[in-house]
Design a protein around this nucleic acid. Structure first.
Lengths: 195, 195
DNA sequence: ACGGGTTCTTACTCGTGAGTAACGTTACGG
DNA sequence: CCGTAACGTTACTCACGAGTAAGAACCCGT
């Protein structure tokens, strides 16, 4: 016994725990400042295990981004109500988005850092999810009578507005979600004329 | 002669050149990945000069952020037309903002990274500028009849929308500025009722 | 024309953190 | 019930980058 043999846990169970630890560390200090030693310690495991399962620092980062991005995107896709009115559909999407942020502060912070950052080898991961959200929003605006030549700009502006509201929310947790949702919905009203 | 004595340049002239070089490097790879050696090379100078003038990596970063932030803020403050209508005032502010971004892509990228990042020791620098812009926008919305209980949320959403549009613009440089400005102004219309 | 402050260099130190080697230990499938 | 694959560890290597010492060349004022 080389000392301190941890409880043995199968890979399928350990991996998500490692990603949880990575989330906390990445969220706290950002990708670059996060060390594999810190993640290992947070996960209660030794560093070579991380390398066994994820190969590299970038590997674990990508795995984490993929999981978080999938979660957010699925929530938004599931929330859409294709039959509804524009305000209904927007409120549903915004609600799903803020739901993710509210339940997953750390995850939001990591995704947020990556959206703006310039890590080329990795940006695609988040950019893909982001453009899927963007496409969903554009589609909704178009279907609900938005000016086709302006929809793209509005979609970008609205996603940015949502992201910024999410950041603000983290600093003012007592703000009711409805305020955030209503703000977005009102602004989107400028994009598509009420019918 | 220890070899390769560069052209001698007084400090008051060399410092801004160093900041220009730092801007390029920070913009390219981000703060953490930027090395002092890279900045020195970009500036055509040796590393100890950077330390002579700025003390540390954080020092040169702060000096740069301060310069860029001051530039952006001054443009926006100067552009406001306190007598005008809401759309006029918003268009003026947005125009000044996009003017900065358009003339200073690299600078925008650096500021942008810092807005979202979690570098506590340094965040205040950009946060200060950002909150000044936020205050200006809130003031305009309030003076022009915005609902006081919602102005804060709108101001955050609008700044986020503007930032996101700026990012989009960098990737689609052929988008006319008017489209960006109009989008923001239209959205802001939801915040304050037309009179 | 020379002293001293400023500009500038080369050539280091030294910590930190990614990634690896080499090796125990558990448990489960045959 | 035992061999072997999966789980897990300690203890390294090695590169890279922040920061520093020590001193050389320049140039201005007196």
């Amino acid at each position: 016994m080389t000392r301190a043999t941890r409880k043995r846990v199968p890979r399928a169970e350990r991996e998500p725990l490692m990603l949880d630890a990575a989330e906390r560390v990445f969220s706290d200090v950002g990708f670059h400042a996060a060390s594999m030693d810190a993640i290992a310690a947070e996960a209660g495991i030794s560093k070579p295990m991380l390398y066994n399962y994820f190969g590299s620092k970038q590997g674990i980062y990508l795995a984490y981004l993929s999981r978080a991005g999938r979660d957010l995107l699925n929530r938004m896709l599931a929330a859409d109500v294709p039959g509804g009115t524009l305000p209904e559909r927007l409120a549903a999407g915004a609600g799903a988005f803020f739901g993710f942020v509210g339940e997953n502060h750390d995850g939001w912070r990591v995704l947020r850092e990556e959206m703006v950052g310039q890590r080329e080898e990795v940006g695609g991961q988040v950019a893909g999810m982001r453009s899927a959200i963007h496409a969903l929003l554009s589609e909704v605006l178009l279907e609900e009578g938005g000016d086709p030549s302006r929809v793209d700009a509005y979609a970008h502006a609205l996603t940015g507005a949502g992201e910024s509201l999410a950041d603000w929310w983290l600093e003012h947790p007592d703000t009711p979600v409805e305020v955030l949702v209503d703000t977005l919905v009102d602004m989107a009203g400028a994009a598509a004329p009420p019918r």
